[in-house]
Every structure is written in structure tokens, then in C-alpha cells.
């Protein structure tokens, strides 16, 4: 019997984030220009399994995917498991900078999806000199609340079931069923209150609509790609953001809110040219 082994390496690193020591899990593959990938709210780094496994990407990039604290294999910092969790822009940016510093990354490319697509705008606003380029997937400057997120974390509703059901609907019906199942499973495994806590950043604290005009894309290029089926961040939301930033946006046909995870092969067709442009830039 033979076994196919993926080229991905997973490790734990101990690092300080906002004054606390965290044990952070990350996966990586490849060599070259660092490419840090940020998962969506309530999920983990498994969403980027195809990017980490793509020979064309890893031939040119050191792809790094970390699980945010409280997500995937990165447990809450010691003594904080019962703390109320609401992700802020400051905390999220601090996590990304801590990982980049700990791994001694020189002007990495950062690609984020959903909340990750929002925080790259904050990075562009606060620290443009630290990044070679930023890629926003499902990226908008704000989102108006459209359902009561309290349903995602209450004792009489199974958090894994309801979070998985929300994630299910954010995907395109055309995406392969096996990949959609994998994607919603990540949500079904999330810790209590984590998805909801992340959405505090997405819907409240991370609203950057008032600062978009202050982002200088000449200091750090921004690339925006959004799936046509996403109703949380619609193509029109990204189009509006792109117009105000003065950059192009690409609408990814037949994909939803989790392009890299729900339809990985198709997503790579969109990503590879963007990475080529960044490398040649």
C-alpha cells in the first residue's frame, strides 16, 4: 500500500502577541517570496490547503498559513479560554505582524479572505511599507448587519451545527460538493463563540469605510477578487471599494465566500496570474 504525502509542514511557534505568550500553529510549503494567507472568521488554515499544495505557487513562494488564536490548532492563550471574545482591528493586526516578525519575513505578500480581506485594508492603511502587496478576497470596507449573530453562540443552539449551516449557504451551488463539505466542516469544528467573536471585527470594529480614502496603493499594491455568489461581500461591494481605491477588481464566476476552499482548483486559476503580476512588479 502506498501513501501520498503532501509537501505541507505544520509547526507550533511560541510568540508574544499584545503582551501575552501564544502557542500559534502554522503550516507552510515552498520557497521564495513569502505569501501569508489569512483564513475567514470562525475557520482555520485548512482553507488554503490547495494553495499550499500547488507546485506553481510554491515554486515561487514560501506560503505560510497560520491559525489565528482560538482557531484550528492555535488554542486561546493560557488563562483566557473563558474570556469574552470579540476580535478587534488592533488585535487582528497585531497577530499578523507578530507572525511576520517571528518568522522574520521580509515584506511578505499577505492574502486574506472575508475578515482577512478586511484586515488587509487595515494593513494597507497602517503599515503599507511592511508588505510587498496585499490580496483581498471577498473584501469590502464594511458590511451592514443582516442577521442576529447571537444565534451563533447560545447554549440552546448547537454552535457547530448553526455555524456550519451559515457557511454552507455562503458557497456557490456550482462548487464541488466534497470541497463544500470540507469547508463547512471547518465551521462545524470551531470553538464556542469564535465565529461570532470574529464577526465583531467584520461587522463593527473593523469597519474601515471612513479611512479608505487615506489608503495609498502606490505604497503597497492591492489586488481584489470576489466570488459572484457571495452575498455577505457581494461583487458590487468589492467593485465599490476598488473604485474608491483606484484599483481593478476581478469577479470570480461561480464562486462564493470561500473561493480558496470551496473551489480550490478554479481559484488557483485566478490567483496564479495575480501572483505573477506581484512578482514582476
Amino acid at each position: 500500500m502506498t501513501m501520498r504525502v503532501e509537501p505541507i509542514i505544520g509547526r507550533y511557534g511560541h510568540m508574544e502577541i499584545e503582551g501575552r505568550t501564544h502557542r500559534v500553529y502554522w503550516e507552510e510549503a515552498g520557497e521564495g517570496v513569502p505569501l501569508v494567507c489569512l483564513h475567514t472568521a470562525g475557520a482555520d488554515g485548512r482553507q488554503y490547503r490547495a494553495v499550499l499544495n500547488d507546485p506553481e505557487v510554491t515554486a515561487h513562494h514560501r506560503v505560510i498559513v497560520f491559525d489565528m488564536p482560538r482557531h484550528g490548532k492555535s488554542s486561546p492563550a493560557p488563562g483566557t479560554v473563558d474570556d469574552a471574545y470579540a476580535l478587534t482591528s488592533d488585535a487582528y493586526a497585531a497577530q499578523i505582524l507578530a507572525v511576520c516578525d517571528a518568522l522574520e519575513l521580509d515584506r511578505p505578500v499577505v492574502m486574506g479572505c472575508s475578515i482577512g480581506g478586511r484586515i488587509v485594508l487595515h494593513l494597507a492603511h497602517r503599515h503599507p511599507e511592511r508588505f510587498r502587496a496585499l490580496i483581498g478576497l471577498q473584501s469590502s470596507d464594511h458590511v451592514a448587519p443582516y442577521y442576529d449573530t447571537a444565534w451563533l453562540h447560545r447554549p440552546d443552539v448547537h454552535g457547530g451545527e448553526v455555524c456550519g449551516a451559515v457557511a454552507y449557504g455562503l458557497m456557490a451551488p456550482q462548487s464541488p460538493e466534497a470541497e463544500r463539505d470540507e469547508t463547512r466542516w471547518h465551521y462545524m469544528q470551531g470553538g464556542p463563540g469564535v465565529f461570532r467573536g470574529d464577526l465583531w471585527f467584520y461587522k463593527v470594529d473593523g469597519d474601515i469605510s471612513g479611512q479608505v480614502a487615506e489608503i495609498d496603493v502606490a505604497k503597497c499594491p492591492i489586488h481584489l477578487l470576489t466570488g459572484s455568489y457571495d452575498y455577505s461581500c457581494t461583487p458590487d461591494d468589492t467593485r465599490d471599494l476598488a473604485r474608491r481605491l483606484g484599483v481593478e477588481m476581478t469577479e470570480m464566476e461561480g464562486m462564493g465566500h470561500f473561493p480558496m476552499s470551496e473551489n480550490p482548483e478554479r481559484f488557483l486559476d485566478y490567483l496564479r496570474p495575480v501572483l505573477r503580476t506581484i512578482r514582476e512588479g
Partner: peptide
Amino acid sequence: PGSHDLMALLK
């Protein structure tokens, strides 16, 4: 798009 899920219609 916008009609493929109950919550898409809600949004």
C-alpha cells in the same frame, strides 16, 4: 446569486 440560500434572500 442572491437567491441560492435563505440567508442570501434575507440579506
